[in-house]
Design a protein around this nucleic acid. Structure first.
Lengths: 347, 347
DNA sequence: GTCGGCCCAACAATCGGTTGCGCAAGACTT
DNA sequence: AAGTCTTGCGCAACCGATTGTTGGGCCGAC
């Protein structure tokens, strides 16, 4: 492979100068005369010389490589988040290298170690669902490689984290539905071991408590596997004939809930209102368009990348805990209830 | 950064051996005695030594890095494709580094060059929509870095390509609809400058021709920007009152078409049948579930990665042109027409 | 006419490993 | 007992760049 690549030595031989001079000429070093620089550049051009970053960064200690470890390539959030990260990373002349842990702590550990082997300049992590502690990140601090945790995290006192303000989003969701007259809502949440899930639920519950609206345990769906959703939804409908609104905490839960509602002939928002936390893509192609608390994956990615690059370049290890607020986007999926609901017959 | 990292030299000093011996001991070289190996490993362990890949691969000439350049992080196809690639890449002890060209030929060029600078062992490319020729890939062949083009390509005689059998998929789609009595179908296609688009359309047209079903130009929608879809769809409905089926060539077009149909009160499949080419995710959460010609992104990714790794490891430059066939997945969105359609009134 | 100084460019060390070759000491032939 | 094999390890070159230091040539100046 690449055995025939042009190196500095080749150029040096061609122009009849030493490697050192060629290197400096290419780097526009003041010690080198204009004439020599021009000559060297021309030769480099014609030989189509490509510097070997591996060699260069071996000496330079850094790699201008930023690693991102994600648990999976979720179709809703990840693509936009990665796009955001990528933009900032590129703008700052770093390269992004993306790894997938497949939600396995073993893989995650392996990948973290791999980051050190590559001597990445910084690491961005979306924790896998299996990750319960952060010991495996110690190798990174040993090598003084800065880390930023984003989106999915666990409690930590040692690492900079950037997340959606999950609890607040959950709170706002419930408050919004209640304000529109929905006093019997169902909340659809995912695996409670994930902090993101627990926080959104906590906010949802707290809003109910604060507003004095009762919230039965059966109004809370905890969906670990997406195929449990249908049964749980059926049970909720059975338990609560007065159910008028559903809140879904993610896009994935939203599209599947929407699908199941359509299938059972439930009209949105006439029969049941629907509200979600989302990055706005799914709400746009569902009918009716779904009112949601929007969190931009792009923004999360961009801010995270900025912060990490700041840490790298200023060698700072100040710990931050940034929470991004969601914004309400009102579309057509939430009706205002003034009277008690009248349920339509289902097919 | 990482200035304090343990190196071979540190280990050598600690155990009182030469770097060469330590290196060989760690590599399990037969020249080194069991006892020495054990001692070295133990020290490496306690010092938590991490080899510097940059240095190692500098000499080794290769990098075990595979680069993937994609135009954008499309939410439907890319995630699964990347997941597939990633799996195979990891299994073979390579690492995947993902770049995004943002559909810009300038970026694409830059990234290709960057691949050579990183001395990637191989490059996977999904061409940007702006890419009209493949000259910028010559640097790669100059460095004898193998390239595989996948999914979106243009005509080429020089590079290995792996694509969905687009034309056949378009043909099958039309044939399927026609076989179910839909003699007036509309096909929704994207930007015709893309080969994938042109081929799917060609198949769609050819099936009509072969089966002797007329196909008016107004039955073919060419949607370059997604917000043109609504108007074009309206025009098609106006031009063809006898319209009974719609074919969408991608997931993105599918979800938006589905949304617009729902909005105009068109029932699927009672009023209009819907068929798509898809990787199966969107069809599962739309109502009713959409019958589609399935192409697995994961499979495409896996096969591509296998082929590239084969090229890398056997140093082969045999050109291939692999086409992956789609499989029909019949769900609930296509009705069988036996008589001429009776259109229901719209809201 | 020598000397300080300025330009330019070369030498050589270095980054962190890998590897061909040589060499010493012990084991084994005959 | 001398010669041949093995075994186990070190020397030193090398990968492709960067960079601190050195030194030759040429200038004007005293």
């Amino acid at each position: 492979m690449a055995g025939n690549r042009i190196t500095l030595k080749d150029i040096a031989k061609t122009v009849g100068l030493s490697m050192a001079t060629v290197s400096r000429a290419l780097a526009d070093h003041p010690d080198i005369s204009r004439a020599t620089k021009d000559r060297v550049r021309e030769v480099a051009q014609t030989l189509s010389y490509i510097p070997n970053y591996r060699a260069r960064y071996l000496r330079a200690k850094h790699s201008r490589l930023i690693a991102l470890i994600v648990p999976e390539m979720n179709m809703f959030f990840m693509p936009s988040m990665i796009a955001g990260i990528n933009r900032v990373v590129q703008q700052n002349d770093y390269s992004l290298i993306v790894f997938q842990s497949d939600n396995s702590i073993v893989q995650e550990r392996r990948l973290v170690e791999y980051c050190t082997q590559l001597s990445a300049d910084g690491v961005l992590m979306v924790l896998s669902s299996e990750t319960a502690d952060l010991q495996h990140l110690d190798v990174l601090s040993d090598c003084s490689i800065p880390v930023v945790l984003l989106d999915k995290t666990i409690e930590t006192v040692k690492h900079t984290t950037i997340t959606i303000d999950d609890q607040e989003a959950g709170r706002e969701a419930a408050a919004y539905l209640i304000a529109h007259g929905h006093t019997r809502c169902v909340g659809v949440f995912s695996d409670q071991r994930q902090r993101i899930s627990a926080l959104r639920l906590k906010g949802f519950q707290r809003a109910h408590a604060e507003l004095g609206i009762p919230l039965a345990e059966t109004q809370i769906l905890r969906v670990a596997m997406i195929d449990e959703l249908e049964e749980q939804l059926d049970r909720a409908f059975a338990a609560h004939p007065d159910l008028t609104a559903i809140f879904t905490m993610t896009d994935e839960l939203l599209v599947h809930t929407h699908h199941l509602l359509s299938r059972r002939g439930t009209r949105i928002p006439e029969d049941v209102s629907l509200l979600s936390i989302s990055d706005g893509q799914a709400p746009a192609f569902l009918h009716p368009n779904v009112t949601h608390l929007r969190h931009s994956g792009v923004e999360l990615g961009e801010r995270t990348a900025h912060i990490l690059i700041g840490m790298i370049e200023h060698n700072s290890d100040a710990m931050m805990d940034v929470r991004i607020r969601t914004t309400l986007v009102e579309l057509g999926s939430v009706a205002t209830r003034t009277t008690s609901p009248k349920r339509r017959a289902k097919r």
